[in-house]
């Protein structure tokens, strides 16, 4: 729900300013604690992950439970955040188990009991089945996960289409995806900002988008990558949106080549005389091979040095940091 709508519905709502990078730091601290019991930790998102305890030499389920309980307590003791744990033989069942009793849940599904555990749960607990699909499936009489297993192939095809076999495997609690410790390579870098009040001022939108360019390219540089395509997306108050992208001839890790593209991209996507609710910037066309050196670009070398200094000063985002001049005149973020 957009903040402005929330404020209309609940005028006494207490608004807490968003904390620049704090969530990320706490998340890192939490996963660091997880890694103290096993190196096999998959950081799925800021607040969700998988731990593989199989290689830890634990002999009984009780030992596993004890270890995880201690971790849950330690996260509370050290970070004062509640986490919910689901222990199971695979990622699918563990994920569903962890979400079953929030907050501070602790659900253990014994090996072999996956199917029985899932059967009485509503079908919407399965990943990929949202509210709309759930309502649609209810028309087929499919309400619980167990309902799936009582149907023949023809009925399942009618309900789930070509994905039916994968759905049956999920309903049986089958999942052989490994816990992946190395995050997948970034295919793109993106950032978006939703405004508390819709914005109609071009200069402000441009300023916000430029800030995103600055912040995203710092990440691109930190990863040792270069990007080629910038895509700008805008959304109006009624959630309709448009997007448009442009590519450089050669990928870059500097802001300067992208700034000149921004103005025209914004004019192209913001083609209605209405205020904007959201703006986002995405960089794609990620390249990692060596950097083609240039002949007449002493300017680029200077920019690269400047970028390196800025990146060092802004590292971690703990302070307001150093920003470019185009951010002056805007309201401060924090």
């Amino acid at each position: 729900m957009p903040t402005s709508q929330a404020l209309r519905m609940c005028p006494d709502l207490i608004m807490i300013p968003h904390t620049n990078g704090l969530y990320g730091q706490v998340s890192d601290a939490m996963f660091d604690l997880c890694e103290s019991i096993t190196p096999w930790v998959q950081r799925n998102s800021i607040d969700e992950g998988y731990l593989d305890l199989a290689p830890c030499g634990l002999k009984t389920t009780t030992e596993v439970e004890d270890l995880v309980r201690r971790l849950q307590q330690r996260i509370w003791d050290e970070l004062q955040i509640t986490v919910s744990m689901g222990i199971a033989a695979n990622k699918l069942v563990a994920q569903i188990a962890s979400k079953l009793r929030k907050p501070k849940g602790f659900v253990v599904v014994p090996v072999g009991a996956e199917r029985d555990f899932l059967a009485p749960l509503s079908i919407g607990k399965l990943p990929g089945i949202g509210a709309k699909t759930e309502a649609y499936l209810a028309e087929f009489g499919l309400k619980l996960i167990g309902d799936i297993l009582g149907r023949n192939e023809r009925e399942l095809k009618a309900a789930f289409g070509s994905d039916w076999a994968a759905v049956v495997a999920m309903a049986r609690g089958k999942d052989d995806r490994p816990v992946e410790t190395i995050p997948p390579e970034a295919k793109s870098y993106s950032q978006q900002e939703t405004f508390t009040e819709d914005v109609g001022e071009f200069a402000k939108i441009e300023r916000v988008a430029k800030r995103m360019i600055d912040e995203l390219l710092a990440k691109v540089r930190a990863d040792g990558k270069r990007v080629r395509t910038i895509t700008v997306r805008v959304r109006y108050g009624d959630f309709t949106q448009t997007s448009q992208g442009k590519s450089l001839v050669e990928a870059s890790d500097l802001e300067a080549p992208f700034y000149p593209l921004l103005g025209s991209l914004l004019s192209e996507v913001w083609n209605q005389r209405r205020k904007l609710r959201l703006v986002s910037v995405r960089f794609s066309g990620v390249e990692e091979s060596g950097t083609q050196l240039e002949m007449f670009t002493q300017g680029d070398e200077k920019r690269r040095k400047l970028a390196a200094v800025l990146d060092r000063l802004n590292l971690g985002g703990t302070s307001a940091g150093v920003s470019r001049g185009h951010q002056l005149g805007g309201t401060k973020r924090n």
């Binding site: 040792g224 990692e288 091979s289 060596g290 050196l293 002949m295």
Partner: peptide, 9 residues
């Protein structure tokens, strides 16, 4: 013909 190299990361 002067050709700038590719700097390997």
């Amino acid at each position: 013909c002067v050709i700038m190299p590719v700097r390997m990361n």
